[in-house]
Structure formats: structure tokens, C-alpha cells
Write a protein that binds this DNA or RNA. Structure first.
Lengths: 337, 337
DNA sequence: ATGAAAGCGCTAACAT
DNA sequence: ATGTTAGCGCTTTCAT
């Protein structure tokens, strides 16, 4: 990377000691130095094009100004907004997120976690969804700062920032009930994800309270393919065909669209479909998707805020921040016929 | 971050010198050490849960094993695949990408570039699209390793990895011509992006060769809103309405959909539309979008490969890698009526 | 207000 | 094959 003007060069040019240069250039210490000396130092630094070496600083201060962000897959459309939300809070404060993808593999997650620890990240944001024992528990024991985002922290005493999934499901059900639907199916995401559990429970509870006939069909992944497969299964089943599907997320809902189309069924005329997340361009699908909007960007920025608070002031108490969601009614739901 | 077992602790436990521990634990030097000593060292390291501090190593070796990736906006659907492609090549080799978003602002780009230089990144991947003078030129003068991805390197002597945009436009035109279209409009992206220029030129050249009547309408951003605005403008114009639109990218094409719908026009019955990029879920739009597929993942992985080659062996010559694209015909194009 | 000096944890050149 | 030594560039006590 080449550029090698160090603090010593600046010191020489400014005719002061390296220590003074450090103090003059550092915001927190610059008032310890004579204002005019500071000016001279800054001039010298500028003249030489001095750039502090943050690796060296990090070694000295044992902080890298870096945050590890562990997600399953950046290509899943809910993550880019979350990551940008994180970045929007971190960047102005001098921190950089380092994003890694686990592809759902625990082994990969462990490897990446270790490599980020080696890189001396100052904290972690976990967006991996599994509810089982993850590295988060171990990280906590090691005294590592972290926050969970878009997943519950069951069993792990880290703060969590999540959308109000139960409320979202509840609103979906009320919307569907108002349209006259009585026979519903919930395509539940993998039960290893905390979000899946919350949504499925909310579905069951909501159906009970609203007097709806609701069945739950599990899937093995939050993917379009799995949505299609599960819906194929529903349509092949001997049970009466549901008039509405509450999908665990938009990808599953998209799979339902595909299955319906393959079976010559129309949405919403034959079957209404509600997604979850309001992923980018959900309104441009065919048909425009009715779905629950989760504020992903805010999920990200809030998680970053809580993490930095935790880092600054290690005495902070774990919080659980639940952000409101909103049902976006579009064209994939209609009155039962 | 707390854990503080250092190489010295391992040395003490293993009864050897720190230097020996370093050698034993480092792949490139571990054959300089007695095999059984090495075993002892590894056992000691494991027992203590030793984790090398890569900040300290970086300071010593002046390399951070980190690559700066500068993109406009992660939320633009073409970038996640590119970033994952980059990561897929870097991660197995011990490098981590650090991704930053400029939001199209040169000032932000400069700031982020500087901060990454301070972080001692070993190289850059630039995915910012502007053709004008950017920081790339300056980076080159500073002897910084870099590669351009998804944009041309006009005027900058860095290697570039791009899709064959001209070919993609050419195939789009041939497809449209075969369907009987003669009056076309190209919605060109901002002329500051090299991709916009390449595509617009290819459009003009193709129309000439195929004997088509092609007009070019500029836009100020690769966005849905701009696509809609530009299409509104086209429809309001006194010139005869085109039968087909070749959009600069899928987002603009989506904007065309919106405009058409607002004007009560149907796609492809009234107007055919071709996008560019085949962004995720383009096949799920309404109507499913005919578009040119760019191999974004490979763009990313190839750019990372070239960058690492360049870092390893600084004598490598700049290359320009053009990856083939493919026209994906779906439902937004049809015969002219 | 500034200089002096030590040291963060590691690697690498030099000795033995 | 391993020990010795120095030092990467910075911050931060401790003096003055």
C-alpha cells in the first residue's frame, strides 16, 4: 500500500515530538496542546499528506473500530437494508462493518466468527436466525459485545432488535378474516429460526381468537423453491383447499405464486396470499404482494446504536427493542369467492 | 474484546521462545521448526485458547488481509451478487472485504476511500460507475492495488471486469427487430456512468445496422422513479409512440412499467420493454421481464481474483475481462401489433 | 504544554 | 532448529 509518512515525519517537520503530534491530531487530546503548535502540526501533516495508520493505533488502543456483522446471505433481499442501516449508524462514528455470510452453516459461522475475533472487531451484530445454541452463547461468556438483529435472543443475554412479528401476523389474519376467509394455511419457515416460531405461534393464537380454521405447514428454508414445494403439497392434500395462505416470508409467498400458476389457479381469485417483510419490489410482483412491512433499515441502525452504547458503557443492561410493523395491502389478497 | 493470551504465554507453556511459536503457528514457516516442537507449541496454543492478533501481525507485516470494496449502494439489487462473488474468492484466502457505500457522492467516496487507506486495506475494488475523474486515478498514482468491476476503466490503468454490454444491447435489438419492432427508444442511464455510455452507443450502432428508428432519452439516475419520469416524457412527446423500449437497466424498465400502467397502456401488447441486468426476481415482475443477464457473481469473483494476483505479483499487466451476457426472453416483449 | 520512554503483539533478520 | 533482538506506528503514562 506504499504511503509511508509516519507521525515521526510530521514531528520532524513541525519541530515537535511525536507524542505531541499524536495529541495534536487526536480530537480527544488536542486541547492538551498549545493551539498554535497544533496549527503547525496540522499544517505539517497536510503538507506531507500524512495519514494515520489505524492498524498501529488499533494495536496500541486495542480497538479496531470495526464491527463484525454475521448474516446468512447478503443475497437474501432483507439483508441489504439491514446492513445499510447498520452502516448508516456506524460510518459517521468512525466504525466500519465487516459483513460475512454463513450460508446457514454453523461450521462456517464458527470459522467466520473466529476470524473476526482475530481481526479484533470491537463487537458483533448477529443476524443469523437460528434459535438453537449458536456461537452467541460462547461469545457472551467471553465478554464479547454483541447484539442480535431480526431474531430473538432466547437463551442468549444479548440485546435484540426485532420487528413485531406477532402483530404483523395478527393484522394479516384480521385482514383476511374481514375478506371472508375462514380456511387458512400458514407456511412456516424452518423451526430453527426464532422468527419462524414467533410467526407460527402468532398464527395459531390468532386463528383461535378469530375463530378461523388455520393449519400450519412447515418448510425447510425461507426460499422460493420451498414455498412452491410446500404449496404443491397443500394443493395435493386431501384436506379442503384453503382460501388464503399466510406465508412465513415473501420468498415463500413467491413460491406460492409459482405453485398456483402451475396449477392453473389464480391469485387472489382462487387463493389469497400474504407475505412477510415487504422485500424490495414486492409491489412489482405478479400480483403485487400484500405483505407485512418490517422496518429493516431501522432494525439495522438501532442494533448498531445499541451495540455502540454497549461498547462505550459496558454497564448497560440488555434490552429488547421491538419495532412496529405494518400490513401493506396490495393485490394478492381479495374477498373469498 | 478481552481475550488476552499472547504468543508469549504460549511460548512459556511450551517452553520455547516466542519467535519459535510464531514460526510453528505460521504455515509458511512451520517447516523451519522441529516437528515435535511444533506439536508441543500447537498443543499449548490450543490449551490456552490462543488466537493470533491479526492487528499486531498486520502492523508488523504491513498488510491487513483486508480489501476495500467501494459501491454506490448495496440496496441496488445488482450489488449483493457482486459482493458475494468477491467474498467467495477472498474468504477462502484469508481476506475480508470491507464494503462501503457512496450513494453516488464523490465527496463521500473520497472520505471512505481515505478511511480505507487508513485502515491499511491491501487493495480496492471499485464498483462505482462514473466515467469522470474519480479517486481511481489518484489511487493509481499512489501505487495502490485496485480493480474496477462493472464499469469501464477509461482513462484509468487498472484492470476492469465488465459484462459484454454492447453484445447484450445488440441481442435485445435483434430480438425486438425479429418481433417486428421498428420504432424504438433507449432510456439511457446517466452519462457519467461508463455503462450508460457503452449501452447507448451500442444502441445507436445497432439501430443503424439493423435499420431501426431508434431514439435515445437520457435519465438522471438508474432508478424506478427516473424510468417512470422518462417514460412519461416519451409518451407525452409529439413524436410517434415507440413500440418498444430498451431500458438502460431493470430499474428503469420497472419505471417504464409504472408509467405504462398509469397511462392505461399494456406491456407487451402496446409497448414491449427490455431491461438490463436480470436483477433478482425480474422473472416475478408484472409482466415477467425480458432482460439481459449479466453474470454479477462472476464479475465479483473474477475481479477479486485479478486483484489478488496483482497484489501477489505486482508486475502483472492490466487486463480487461469481458464476460458474456445472455438475453433472457420473458413476457415483457411481444410481436408488434 | 511538551518531551521522554515504554510497549501494544507480532514477525523477521541475524545469530548461534 | 531455535534463541536474540529489533521494530512496525502509534498512544500514553510519567516527567519536566
Amino acid at each position: 500500500m506504499s504511503r509511508r509518512v509516519t507521525i515521526a515525519d510530521v514531528a520532524t517537520l513541525a519541530g515537535v515530538h511525536p507524542g505531541t503530534v499524536s495529541r495534536a491530531l487526536n480530537l480527544k487530546t488536542q486541547d492538551q496542546v498549545n493551539i498554535e503548535t497544533a496549527g503547525r502540526v496540522r499544517a505539517a501533516a497536510k503538507q506531507l499528506g500524512y495519514t494515520p495508520n489505524s492498524i498501529a493505533r488499533g494495536l496500541r488502543t486495542s480497538s479496531s473500530m470495526t464491527i463484525g456483522v454475521i448474516i446468512p446471505d447478503l443475497t437474501n433481499p432483507i439483508f441489504p437494508p439491514i446492513v445499510r442501516g447498520i452502516d448508516s449508524y456506524l460510518a459517521p462514528r468512525g466504525y466500519s462493518p465487516v459483513v460475512v455470510n454463513t450460508d446457514g452453516s454453523d461450521a462456517t459461522e464458527r470459522l467466520l466468527f473466529d476470524s473476526l475475533v482475530q481481526r479484533q472487531v470491537d463487537g458483533f451484530i448477529f443476524a443469523t436466525g437460528h434459535a438453537g445454541p449458536s456461537i452467541a452463547g460462547e461469545a457472551y461468556k467471553r465478554g464479547i459485545h454483541a447484539v442480535m438483529v431480526n431474531r430473538d435472543s432466547r437463551g442468549v443475554p444479548y440485546p435484540a432488535v426485532v420487528g413485531d412479528d406477532a402483530q404483523g401476523i395478527r393484522e394479516s389474519l384480521e385482514h383476511l378474516a374481514a375478506l371472508g376467509h375462514r380456511r387458512l394455511v400458514h407456511l412456516a419457515g424452518p423451526s430453527t429460526f426464532s422468527t419462524s416460531q414467533v410467526r407460527a405461534e402468532a398464527f395459531a393464537a390468532g386463528c383461535r381468537e378469530l375463530g378461523l380454521d388455520g393449519a400450519i405447514v412447515p418448510t425447510s428454508a425461507y426460499s422460493v423453491d420451498e414455498g412452491q414445494r410446500a404449496m404443491d403439497e397443500v394443493l395435493a392434500s386431501s384436506a379442503g383447499r384453503p382460501t388464503a395462505i399466510v406465508a412465513g416470508n415473501d420468498l415463500l409467498a413467491l413460491g406460492v405464486y409459482h405453485s398456483l400458476r402451475r396449477h392453473g389457479l389464480r391469485c387472489p381469485d382462487d387463493v389469497s396470499v400474504v407475505g412477510f417483510n415487504d422485500m424490495p419490489f414486492a409491489g412489482d410482483f405478479q400480483p403485487a404482494m400484500t405483505t407485512v412491512r418490517t422496518p429493516h433499515f431501522q432494525l439495522g441502525s438501532e442494533s448498531a446504536r445499541i451495540l455502540l452504547d454497549q461498547i462505550d458503557d459496558s454497564g448497560s443492561t440488555p434490552v429488547r427493542l421491538v419495532l412496529p410493523v405494518e400490513l401493506i395491502v396490495r393485490a394478492s389478497t381479495g374477498p373469498v369467492r
